[in-house]
Design a binder for these strands. Structure first.
Lengths: 161, 161
DNA sequence: CTGAATTAGTTGAAGGAACAACTAAACGCC
DNA sequence: GGCGTTTAGTTGTTCCTTCAACTAATTCAG
């Protein structure tokens, strides 16, 4: 079967998307590291915990919500624990499992980091788009995620009515 | 000044975009590594060289087009050179500079990798969208890149008429 | 000209991510 | 109810990225 190459419009959209995907992490990381001493991934871990009931999640669930492998998360959480923003404890229900819980210090850390982060997002993304484009982007992302993340693991937290 | 938080639509768009940015690199890397033994970044390096006149670019220019730091590119190109897909030579015009050139083997490698990659892009991105959405995404990406990449370094190659 | 500052690139060391191997608990089923 | 399988998580190794230090060539100022 012959390859179906991308036409001009498709190629433009694709190249643009790739460039955004390439550049955005650096922009997010740089601001968070500079102002809060957190990587974007660490910020996301803390954010997921802060939204969870009891500020607590099992490692596996947290890994799914942050798109991390379990080894990666394990290392990151260990480092976060050393810094006192997260605590780990064996899960009473299932003794194989570990619960990660955001500490008071961790809550303070993410609450301190959030305004600057949101500001950064606004400056680099939201404010660059018209309201219509924001709405279009919402739909486009949803369509893409249907394939990239069929179970909606990464976005589940924000999809409450 | 108080933080201006994101409203519902903005938050949806933002969370979706972050999820896409988080997931897409893994999808691209996985296919390319599996089928061609290249990371997406390596693929992009070879692609930029293949589009350049004489299949040759100076390290600095290549770094800009791929959004790499110079040290990163230097390491990657060294490894690619060890694999015989790229050659380095001192630039005659400016003896500080180094030219990287895609070898015949490198050209063969990227030509072999391209169909599977394009296929993957189509499956995961283009085919998930309507034609209108592809066009909207094109515009949205362009608007974002105006801030993320004001000089258009990453997309310059594909913007010839 | 000549010396200071800038630019191009490499190299080495340190930190983080992916992968593989491992431990331990729970499930499943006959 | 014991044995194989699956699930949860950690640990260690390897590879890649980032950062800092360095060399060498070029530019620019006086």
């Amino acid at each position: 079967m012959d390859t179906q190459w991308l036409d001009k419009d498709e190629l433009g959209a694709w190249v643009g998307l790739v460039a955004v995907v390439e550049l955005l992490p650096g922009v997010l990381d740089a601001q968070l590291r500079r102002d809060s001493g957190l990587t974007h991934f660490e910020y996301y871990v803390l954010a997921m915990l802060s939204e969870a009931p009891e500020r607590t999640l099992r490692m596996t669930e947290l890994a799914q919500q942050t798109n991390a492998t379990l080894p990666r998360l394990s290392h990151v959480v260990r480092r976060l624990e050393e810094r006192g923003v997260v605590e780990r404890s064996p899960c009473p229900d299932d003794r194989r499992a570990t619960n990660a819980r955001l500490t008071g210090k961790g809550l303070a850390a993410i609450e301190a980091a959030a305004p600057g982060h949101v500001d950064n997002v606004r400056r680099h993304v939201i404010d660059a788009l018209t309201r219509d484009q924001v709405s279009q982007l919402h739909d486009i992302a949803a369509a893409l995620l249907e394939r990239l993340d069929p179970n909606g693991l990464l976005t589940a937290v924000y999809e409450r009515p």
